[in-house]
Every structure is written in C-alpha cells, then in structure tokens.
Amino acid sequence: MFTIEQVLQPETLEEAYQALHGNISNTVLGGCAFLRLGSKKIATAIDLSELKLDYILEPGKEIEIGAMTTFRTVETHPTLHQLFNGVLPKSVSNIIGVQFRNVVTVGATVYSKYGFSDLLTALLALDTEVELYKGGRLPLEEFLQKSFPKDILTRLFIQKNARKASYQSMRNSLSDYPILTIAVSELNQRWRIVVGARPLRAQLASKASEALSNSKLTAEDIEQSASLAVEELSFGSNIRGSAEYRKAMCKVLVKRGIMEVLQCK
C-alpha cells in the first residue's frame, strides 16, 4: 500500500505543476486504483479533484475529455456511443466492474501509457491529441512514442468526424487484463490498424494501415494487411499468453476488425 505524507488540493494547474516538481516523490493522484497496488512513499499527493477536470464536452469540431473523467463516464456518455461506432465506451466496458470504472480516470491511464490499456488502443485509432500542462498539445501517437519531462495530463481532444471504427479485445476471462487489444478505423478510405497489449503498449501498424488504404479491400487484401500487421509489430510473452499465441490472434482480430468496419454505417 502506498503512503502519503501530505495532501495538496491545488486551485490552479500551475500550483499542481510546481508541487509535482517540488520533490521527486510528489505524485499526481488519479483515481488511485493503480497507485494503491504499489508501495510508493509519496511526500506530497497532488489531488486534482478541485480543478474541474471531470467532464466530457463537445465544443464544435472536437470532443474534449478532462483528465479526471472516469471510465464509467466514458462508457455511458451518449455522444460517445454515437460517434465512431461506440468504440470508446466499448473499449472500457469490460474493465473489472461498474464500481471500479467509477474510480479510474482517463488522464492517469493515458499519461501512464500502460501496455495493457484498452482505452489507449481505441484512442489511437481515432484522431486524438493529448494536452500536457507544460508540454502543450500533441498527437497521441507522438506522446506514446517519445518520452517527455514529468508533466500533468490535463485534457484529451478527439476530432469529431465520420470515422468508422471497431474495437476487439481478447481476455482469458471477462474482467482480466487483455491478452491483445485491436482497434481498426477508416475515414475517407484511410485506414488505421492499432494493436495493443502485445503486451507492449498500443502501436499503429503503419505498413498494414497504408497497404489497406491503397487496396481494393478484397478478401486477399484484408488477409495481407492482417499478416503485415503481425510482421511489422513486435509481440512478447507474459503469464496471459505467449508471443506466438498473440501473433496468431492478432491476425484473426485485425481481420475481424476490418470486416466490422466495412459493415459499419
């Protein structure tokens, strides 16, 4: 169990950021479901609850999701059910249970870049940007690929467009961590194939996505893109599944994802 010497409930993000850099063990609190599993000795716990970051808004062409928004809010949000064939609600809906999803937060999940993350896989298949308090706004893909100085994730922005999408995951049992997560999407004949929980973090299969975008989408094209995704990404083994098993499943799920998107309205 983690320990907390002192709690700070900042009234501004600047105050939170200064506190985060005040001591190496100062830590931002999300929902704390993950933090409580560890034994971190936190000098100052920075609680963002007072900063009004728990919301989903749709100003104009984007959806804006505050860092303290819970998975349950994502799961039950009416607009998110309509957009992108509901991939965001679908991606979080099998994580433990309702009362858990009322605790865990979007900001902590994205910032932590967990390999097993269902949400990250779905977000990466959409046109998503993250906002870091100091680091500013940048594409999620860039955020996942590079390392950045310690910061606070404040918001996510997702372009509200006609992207069609599908989300697939595979688990040993319904509420276990996933063995593999797949999201596939298409907008204006440009496809995105994303594979996560390999068990490495979600990554765009760029060659496979490009090949599919330039194809006639025949059964062979789909088969070939799925094979390309397996070839270009690396897979590892853990207690949930071997690399070989993940590769075999990846091919199946990518094909399934593409077929599902083709049938999306």
Binding site: I4, V7, L29, G31, C32, A33, R36, L37, D47, S49, R72, I96, G97, V98, Q99, F100, N102, V103, S175
Partner: peptide
C-alpha cells in the same frame, strides 16, 4: 481482495456505486 476486483466493498458516493477500497477517504 487487495486488487480492486471483488466488489465486496461497494458503497455509493453521490449515488454512484464505487469501490471504497480504492477511494482515498479524504476525497
């Protein structure tokens, strides 16, 4: 449990079912 996965500790916070084992009391 110790891993936020059994639901035995469920209470409602502002009407929402929530794991009390994964919620800091001061919140």
């Amino acid at each position: 449990c110790d891993t936020s996965c059994c639901g035995l500790c469920t209470v409602w916070i502002d009407g929402k079912p929530t794991l009390s084992c994964s919620t800091l009391a001061f919140r």
